[in-house]
């Protein structure tokens, strides 16, 4: 059970790292690639603080092995630059302590891409995957909806 060398596609770059097969992707991203945007909150798939995008879908990186990510397109919060949802989080005060924020933003980002016309039901279904302990969620709802509105044609 020696360590394995694997190649990952992360934030548009090709990165080669050495991991144990049992290392989670979260552990590899933080420990091997220095990407500390994804946060450990429970390591149990419950809180969503470690959420990233894998092939465009949200993924709790504590629930995925690093070796499972080979051949997939991984995007962490560090891979987003001045996106509408990040700007909306700033404007709407949709963060306080900021710890859940990278995970929340990655989930919102994927939601906006997969469902540019998301209704309340879909927004709820997606966003209940993350816990924010500071805000009231209303701020996050406003942030997501402000981007949805802007992306509507003529909106």
């Amino acid at each position: 059970m020696a360590s394995k060398t694997i190649t990952l596609h992360v934030n548009g770059e090709v990165r080669t790292i050495t991991v144990r097969a049992s290392d989670t992707l979260l552990f590899a991203l933080r420990g091997k690639l220095g990407l500390t945007g994804p946060k450990p909150g429970c390591l149990n798939g419950d809180c969503g603080a470690c959420t990233i995008n894998v092939d465009g879908w949200p993924m709790k990186s504590c629930l995925m092995l690093a070796v499972e990510a080979v051949g997939k397109e991984v995007v962490t919060i560090e891979g987003l630059h001045d996106t509408p949802i990040q700007r909306a989080f700033v404007e709407e005060f949709a963060f306080q302590c900021g710890y859940c924020t990278p995970g929340f933003i990655m989930n919102c980002h994927s939601l906006l891409k997969q469902h540019p016309d998301a209704d309340d039901r879909i927004i709820k279904e997606w966003l209940e995957s993350n816990i924010c302990r500071c805000t009231s969620y209303i701020e996050i709802e406003k942030a997501v909806k402000s981007v949805l509105r802007k992306e509507e044609p003529g909106g």
């Binding site: 879908w57 629930l63 279904e125 997606w126």
Partner: peptide, 12 residues
Amino acid sequence: ASEVADHTARGK
């Protein structure tokens, strides 16, 4: 299925 765990976890 849509009531199991949460949406992101159900992706796994």
